[in-house]
């Protein structure tokens, strides 16, 4: 069980929960500081850092030049000195100029220096589609990071986890890529664009404690118990999966991975051994997506329990296409169809 915060809970959107996590850490640890494009006075293009500069001062929360490589590179230098920098990359699509800093530096500093230097940075960045953002405001690059050993990759699916996982990430001794599913910043979008979006208000996982608490990295959550098939998802897709399962009428178990590195392999294996079937849902393109790793792991560890081939429901292997947002986005209908396929008698 996650540690509970002390002060009273209140209902928060994911944006407010993330803001609360940053506020908590800035308040309790003078070594924590945050910077990124437009995050200071303005409070960030998604308003996650709103009010933090006014409250904690410009030295703790400031605007950065449009230089992703230097944002992450400088954060590594600060972290090596002993600070706890939390940086924002405005969209995950724009982390790529910093890829060398992540792959060759953040992920390897501890290893190559024999433990003399390390980089406990947290890189927050909104990712994912469903917002008509076109090719460079919609991508889901989690597999790129998961492939780089030495980096942790965390993806919350609700306000409670967002705060607890972000605090855990900041306190973690390793570099963490913290991917924020922007489509669910303001409400649990379930992949049906024709249905009016509900806000987080009233959602049980939007009850967020005011103070410090953590959700440990590497612990998946079972969002729905079921017996017939295991669905693996994270981020926005947890809500899409719930809708797809409901649509299918199949008794599926839904696992929210919460972090893909570290990965809670026990929970996955235990579930698939129980259900004998597995469907993986992610927004990212399919080929060499994180679903490929999950599929391989399940096959390696649960082969003799499997009653049907593992299915992956993913974004198509194309760039994210503006006009075809909902043709591309793997919605509940595609998941329901996959669930029906794996349930067909052999």
């Amino acid at each position: 069980m996650p540690e509970k915060g002390t002060a009273a809970n209140s209902s928060m959107s994911m944006i407010q929960a993330l803001n609360s996590a940053l506020d908590t850490m800035l308040g309790q640890d003078p070594d924590t500081l945050i910077f990124g494009q437009d995050i200071g006075y303005f409070g960030g293009v998604f308003r996650v850092t709103e009010g933090l500069q006014a409250k904690h001062g410009a030295k703790r929360c400031f605007d950065a030049p449009i230089a992703e490589s230097a944002i992450i590179g400088a954060a590594i230098g600060m972290a090596a000195y002993g600070l706890r920098p939390v940086v924002e990359i405005q969209f995950a699509d724009y982390i790529l100029p910093a890829f060398d800093q992540l792959v060759s530096e953040a992920a390897r500093l501890r290893y190559r220096s024999g433990g003399q230097f390390w980089a406990p940075i947290t890189v927050r960045t909104p990712y994912g589609g469903g917002i008509f953002g076109g090719q460079t405001h919609s991508q889901s690059p989690e597999a790129l990071f998961a492939h780089v050993t030495g980096l942790k990759t965390v993806i919350p699916s609700n306000p409670y986890d967002a705060k607890g996982l972000l605090i855990a990430s900041i306190e973690d001794e390793d570099p963490v890529i913290f991917l924020e599913p922007k489509r669910i910043y303001n409400g649990p979008f379930d992949g049906r664009p024709d249905v009016a979006l509900k806000s987080w208000a009233g959602h049980p996982l939007a009850e967020v404690p005011a103070g410090h608490y953590t959700v440990p990295l590497g612990q998946a959550a079972i969002r729905r118990e079921g017996n017939d098939v295991t669905v693996l998802a994270y981020g926005t897709m947890v809500h899409v999966a719930a809708a797809g399962i409901e649509q299918s009428g199949i008794d599926a178990e839904l696992i929210d991975l919460r972090s893909i590195v570290p990965l809670d392999i026990e929970t996955i294996v235990e579930s698939v051994k129980k259900t004998g079937r597995c469907v993986i849902l992610h927004e990212a393109t399919r080929f060499s997506g994180f679903g490929a790793e999950l599929s391989a792991l399940v096959q390696e560890r649960c082969f003799y329990h499997l009653e049907a081939p593992i299915e992956r429901v993913c974004g198509w292997d194309t760039p994210y296409p503006h006009a075809f947002e909902w043709d591309y986005f793997p919605g509940p209908g595609r998941l329901a169809a996959a669930l029906a396929r794996v349930m067909e008698p052999a």
């Binding site: 699509d93 076109g134 090719q135 460079t136 405001h137 760039p319 296409p321 503006h322």
Partner: peptide, 20 residues
């Protein structure tokens, strides 16, 4: 395929724009 206003118009001496 592309976000509004990220035009491309080779015949007009205008290379393809992208969001990055």
């Amino acid at each position: 395929r592309q976000l509004p206003i990220l035009y491309s118009a080779r015949d007009y001496g205008f290379y393809s724009i992208s969001g990055n």
